[in-house]
Design a protein around this nucleic acid. Structure first.
Lengths: 111, 111
DNA sequence: AGCTTGTATTACCGTATAAGCATATTGTAA
DNA sequence: TTACAATATGCTTATACGGTAATACAAGCT
């Protein structure tokens, strides 16, 4: 369960940085694709309808944050998730958003 | 546990937005302060050494995202956490960062 | 009413970042 | 080597965001 510890001021910046990495829709889509298994860059491109340079750039950022790892397979660069906690975080956010929408809906139905 | 469901493209933008809210150090510090209990704006200001308009602005953003709720007590505006999942997320990030630093340390000790 | 404290808002500035395009690099095969 | 496919990188532009300062608003007090 959550430890709910107070985080130090230095740590705050690292945590904020991680959240920033996760705060881009394109990157979330890429991670979403990779959830099913490792993919090459072009495979991600075709699944996301984003440009190849764009995908490459985002993959580099994700790799730099340690969320994704890279290996070469001949001509291809194969990327895969290297930190599953990102999906747990996404689930937490989804649940939070659901709860929020539900309470908002209640407000409307009462009014 | 994590459900690891695939999130829809519309949802991606909402999730990204939530992460963006969490990606600012100042906001994380404010949330960190509020973890111990409700506080007025000036109390947060004194704890964070940020300017009052700055704190107010961030609080508005946090409230808009439903992470914090506001009530008036006379002259004061009292803010408090309204979504505890944020701390769970912070813990996840902290643990992830720890793991990462640990493996990096191993790399160095081997080399 | 006027005064004071606490809070919110506005307007501006500087910075950061994502997307697009062109180009460079890497790796493979002929 | 050349040619080609896959991937990465620079560069530019547009946009968004955070901080600051000045100001406006709200609520209590005399």
């Amino acid at each position: 369960m959550a430890q709910h510890r107070k985080i130090s001021e230095e740590t705050v910046y690292l945590v904020a940085e991680r959240f920033k990495i996760m705060s881009d829709p394109m990157r979330l889509m890429i991670l979403n694709c990779l959830q099913e298994g490792p993919l090459s860059v072009m495979e991600i491109v075709s699944k996301t309808s984003a440009s190849q340079p764009n995908v490459s750039k985002h993959l580099k950022i994700l790799q730099g944050a340690g969320l994704v790892s890279r290996r070469r397979s001949g001509n291809l660069a194969i990327y895969q998730i290297s930190d599953d906690s990102i999906f747990t975080m996404c689930d937490l956010v989804c649940n939070s958003l659901e709860r929020r929408l539900k309470t908002q809906a209640e407000v409307f139905s009462v009014a």
